[in-house]
């Protein structure tokens, strides 16, 4: 069965994915809202940057993150100035890299849901004495709920499934950065196929259940919110 190291890796993965999902929803919502509403020429470039992790090899992303977080990088200088030290090869470094890596999976479903709303609910709310901020919280957010659910599930699952970025940024430190995917890699390297099978099987089952849930949820909600690939 699972070894103590396996359980550590599973726990670490769940913790990482949960924190990253919460951060993604907080960071992704305003970006999605802006992308859904703006007429600015910046919409194209910003949308493309947000979508970059969809097409870039994780190693490329990880490489730049590593450089940025390093002692001479912008983020590294900043964290050092704050007295936090350097982020690479730490859990929080992994969190930040994961947020960037999974951003499109969260922004796009929310953006699609918000775009599908159109102008009308906002105008109706305005004629009912609802100011701009309240309009966002009382009308836009509840009406975009299906998009948020899809976004949260995809963000969580995608973070669980990442590997390349973890290797570049986090390395392989037990209880710090050794997530399930890295643990499997280690087993394969060490020719321990039995243990690898166990964890790999767990990942397949998990991913299947998640996707089944997303598609089932979408069929129920009738309109497609899955804006990714």
């Amino acid at each position: 069965m699972f070894t103590a190291a396996d359980l550590d890796a599973i726990w670490l993965t769940l913790r990482l994915a949960s924190i990253v999902t919460v951060l993604l929803l907080i960071v992704g919502t305003p970006i999605a809202w802006w992308l859904a509403r703006t007429q600015s020429w910046l919409k194209g470039p910003v949308g493309a940057i947000v979508a970059l992790p969809l097409v870039l090899p994780p190693t490329v992303l990880g490489f730049y993150m590593l450089v940025a977080m390093g002692p001479n990088g912008a983020i590294g200088q900043f964290t050092q100035a704050l007295g936090i030290g350097l982020l690479p090869f730490s859990f929080w470094g992994l969190v930040i890299a994961s947020v960037v890596y999974s951003l499109p999976f969260v922004v796009q479903p929310i953006q699609n849901a918000m775009q599908a709303l159109g102008e009308r609910p906002l105008e109706a709310a305005a004629t009912l004495r609802v100011g701009p901020w309240e309009r966002f919280f009382c009308v836009v957010l509840p009406l975009s709920k299906p998009g948020f659910i899809t976004a949260a599930i995809l963000g969580f699952a995608h973070t669980v499934g990442e590997f390349g970025v973890v290797l570049m940024i986090g390395g392989n430190i037990p209880q710090q950065t050794r997530v399930v995917s890295v643990q499997i890699y280690d087993y394969v390297e060490a020719m321990e196929y039995g243990q690898a099978h166990l964890l790999a099987g767990l990942m397949v089952a998990f991913s299947f259940v998640v996707l089944l849930g997303v598609y089932g949820f979408q069929r129920q909600g009738s309109n497609s919110m899955l804006g990714v690939k």
Binding site: R120, P121, A124, A125, A126, T127, K145
Partner: peptide, 20 residues
């Protein structure tokens, strides 16, 4: 004066009820 500060009622051409 922005719409939300005008004491009006507005009925749109197609139903504009909040679907949720």
């Amino acid at each position: 004066v922005p719409t939300h500060q005008r004491p009006i009622g507005y009925v749109f051409q197609e139903a504009s009820l909040f679907e949720h």
